[in-house]
Nucleic acid binder design. Structure first.
Length: 657
RNA sequence: GCUGAAAUAGCUCAGCUGGCAGAGCACUUCACUCGUAAUGAAGGGGUCGUGGGUUCGAGUCCCAUUUUCAGCUCCA
């Protein structure tokens, strides 16, 4: 048989051979480094017997598949160690994940010391260096084996497995695991690992099931790489918006105010104000929006029309006694109010207040709207998951003929926002579809959903957007284009959304008069442009590690007199800057100039102007900056012109370093 | 909501088996009036998250609660 290798070369063998034997035949080094293989593009175990012509790619730790096999093997070693130390621990599942692996056990929770002990036991197992044997059993034998070993979760998985004859097992020493593989040849190959944390996790990810104990870890084939990775984890903590944003005095929280209710400090408020002024002017002046300002709350009657009362009541803050009789009338006799979880119906009533003609469409409404969502107590996080937040919201009411063009306009505007903020490369696009298996969670019928999802897909394809499709992520009233971004820890959030709505115009009896004088139902697009201010700020903090583009900085310039003698000149410079709309301050403390510069750098300021005798005489300033190529003496007016241009164009400059 | 951890000065943290509340940075004052990454000295600042309990005595032990963090689940 003929085996074609990755580099295109061929190896011929007279008889069937395992992948690891072929690797050894190529070189001992490769055999030692081999973690898994790809046979004709399919991921495979090193023990796989090759008995036919094929393309073979032997995977080492440098490949994604190799890493996974390596780390998955480490998960097995961890499971063996846990069972050695805690014989009552029951095995659940333990896959490789991005950057590491985990394993779930049914056992009491663990402390850091417990993890350290498990690490020690793992080292013993690795030192012993058992080979992993692979074999198959019939379902009957498999159930018998795992029942005998008292592993109820494994028995459950085996029983549900579609295969009946050849269920794969791996064994190292006394440890046996029902597992598809692939795996390393021996535990000895694991060179460097670390158990990073443990926490609770529901069996099968279902909150109705028992909570198990999950241990997270990671593994590398070089000690140095592990150390580098652990150092990297420490480093990204310094970008974490929740830490950095508080340190930089952008926001804070207070226990008596409550979870998910951040307070913006003056600097954070200034940044949000800059974002808001920018986006409102952009929408109104360049994208044809009209601005609205609608109430933060409404009677329950409104939400009953939109059916938020039916689909989303749990997520709303209800004011007053919401007990109702069987007809939906308040038992107390008082009106029930609720804080708004979205702005849609409010803006619909702005649309409806005057009869609209087809000539008025598209009617694009924008509102910087604060909304309230009663998230579960464990869900709040920094600025990315909060109970009150503000979005650059808008609704476009248009004719069926206009829908594609308007939708594209919304996507264009969103991408323009991303580009301006320097975030365009950091996002992925997701088409969020309904879940046909849970139709009760949505308005409308399968036919209607097929139609509107088809329409959205056509638009997205027409734009040429690279997007994924995900089931069960739609709004209850329609599919969404979600623009997703990951935080420093790799956790994904929706930053911007553009949604098609095919039901609410009917429910709110919205219409326009067409060319023939007939009433017609408009189409509605729900959308954000820059998205949620809180999340955007969080994202900017992490993206720029607090060193924002100048136009967004709360403090753009700090004037630093070299001594109190130059306080007056510093004051003149300051007022010139402010007169030109630059956010500037002056540091008049009686500290040495080097000290003041250091402070300004720690505050991540884009520009510092040092002033003393030389500057006062010549009318110049000495510019210090965190940007490349912008140091030295400058005429004050030249500096002002430069920075004003930079702010106006929203330039993203390259940092020194 | 679930599992676990944590909460001590503005910030970062120390405070052992219960026995007078600590450090560094920051802040204030004084001296210095300074030329590009930390001038010197002195001083102020704490109901030890909150509420109960055990104890002669609680920052420390127990219970409840709030908030924060990690993860799970959820996110219209």
């Amino acid at each position: 048989m003929k085996v074609t290798l990755k580099d295109g070369s061929c190896k011929e063998y007279a008889s069937a051979m395992t992948v690891i034997d072929i690797a050894a035949d190529i070189s001992d080094g490769l055999a030692r480094a081999a973690c898994a293989a790809e046979i004709d593009g399919q991921i495979a175990d090193l023990r796989t017997v090759i008995d036919r012509d094929c393309e073979l790619n032997i995977l080492t730790f440098d490949s994604e598949g190799g890493k996974r096999a390596y780390r998955h093997t480490c998960a097995h070693v961890m499971a063996e160690a846990v069972q050695n130390l805690y014989p009552d621990a029951k095995l659940a599942i333990g896959p490789a994940i991005d950057n590491g692996f985990y394993y779930d056990f049914d056992m009491p929770s663990l402390s850091r010391e417990d993890l350290d002990n498990i690490e020690k036991e793992m080292k013993k197992i690795i030192k012993k260096g058992d080979r992993l044997e692979r074999y198959t059993l019939s379902k009957e034998e498999a159930v018998k084996l795992m029942t005998g070993r008292d592993e109820p979760y494994k028995v459950e998985m085996i029983n549900e497995h579609p295969d009946t004859d050849t269920l794969t097992f791996y064994k190292q020493g006394d440890f046996i695991e029902f597992c598809a593989g692939p795996h390393l040849i021996s535990t000895k190959q694991i060179k460097a690992f670390k158990l990073t944390s443990s926490s609770g996790a529901y069996w099968r990810g279902d909150e109705h099931n028992k909570m198990l104990t999950r241990i997270y870890g990671t593994a590398f084939n070089k000690k140095q790489d592990l150390e580098d990775y652990l150092e990297y984890l420490e480093d990204i903590k310094n970008r974490d918006h929740n830490k950095l944003g508080r340190e930089m005095d952008l926001f804070t929280t207070v226990d008596v105010i409550g979870q998910g209710l951040p307070l913006f400090m003056p600097k954070g408020t200034k940044m949000i104000q800059k974002l808001q002024r920018w986006i409102e002017d952009l929408e109104d002046n360049e994208w044809g929006y009209v601005r609205t300002r609608t109430p933060l709350m409404a009677k329950s009657d409104l939400y009953k029309i939109s059916d938020h009362w039916g689909h989303y009541k749990e997520g709303m803050f209800i004011l007053g006694d919401d007990d109702e009789d069987e007809n939906g009338n308040s038992i107390s006799g008082n009106d029930i109010f609720a804080l708004r979880p979205m702005t849609c119906p409010f803006q619909y009533y702005v649309y409806k207040a005057r009869q609209k003609s087809y000539r008025d469409l598209p009617y694009r409404m924008g509102e910087t709207s604060t909304i309230f969502r009663n998230e579960d107590s464990g869900e709040m996080h920094g600025l990315t998951r909060v109970r009150q937040f503000t979005i650059s919201e808008g609704h476009l009411i248009c004719t069926p003929e206009q829908i594609a063009e308007e939708f594209k306009g919304c996507v264009d505007l969103a991408r323009h926002c991303l580009k301006t903020l320097g975030l365009e490369e950091d996002v992925t696009y997701r088409m969020s579809k309904w879940d046909p298996e849970n139709p009760e969670k949505y308005l409308g019928t399968a036919e209607e959903w097929d139609k509107v999802e088809g329409a959205m897909r056509e638009i997205l394809d027409d734009i040429g957007l690279d997007y994924t499709e995900e089931k069960g992520e739609a709004a209850f009233y329609g599919p969404k284009l979600d623009i997703q971004a990951k935080n420093v820890y790799g956790k994904e959030d929706t930053m911007i959304t553009v949604q098609l709505d095919m039901f609410l115009s009917e429910r709110f009896d919205m219409y326009y008069i067409d060319e023939n004088g007939d009433k017609k139902r408009p189409y509605i697009i729900h959308r954000t442009s820059m998205g949620c201010y809180e999340r955007t700020l969080a994202w900017l903090i992490e993206k720029y590690a607090g060193k924002f583009p100048t136009w967004l900085c709360a403090e753009q310039v700090r004037v630093l007199p070299i001594s109190e003698k130059f306080k007056d000149y510093a004051g003149k410079v300051l007022s010139e800057l402010k007169k030109n709309g630059i956010d500037a301050t002056v540091d008049n403390r009686s500290e040495k100039i080097g000290y003041k510069i250091r402070e300004a750098r720690l505050d991540k300021l884009p520009y510092m102007l040092v002033v003393g005798a030389q500057e006062e005489e010549t009318g110049k300033v000495s510019v210090r900056s965190r940007f490349a190529g912008d140091e030295g003496q400058k005429d004050l007016q030249v500096f002002i012109d430069d920075i004003c241009r930079e702010i106006r164009t929203k330039e993203i400059r390259t940092e020194i370093e």
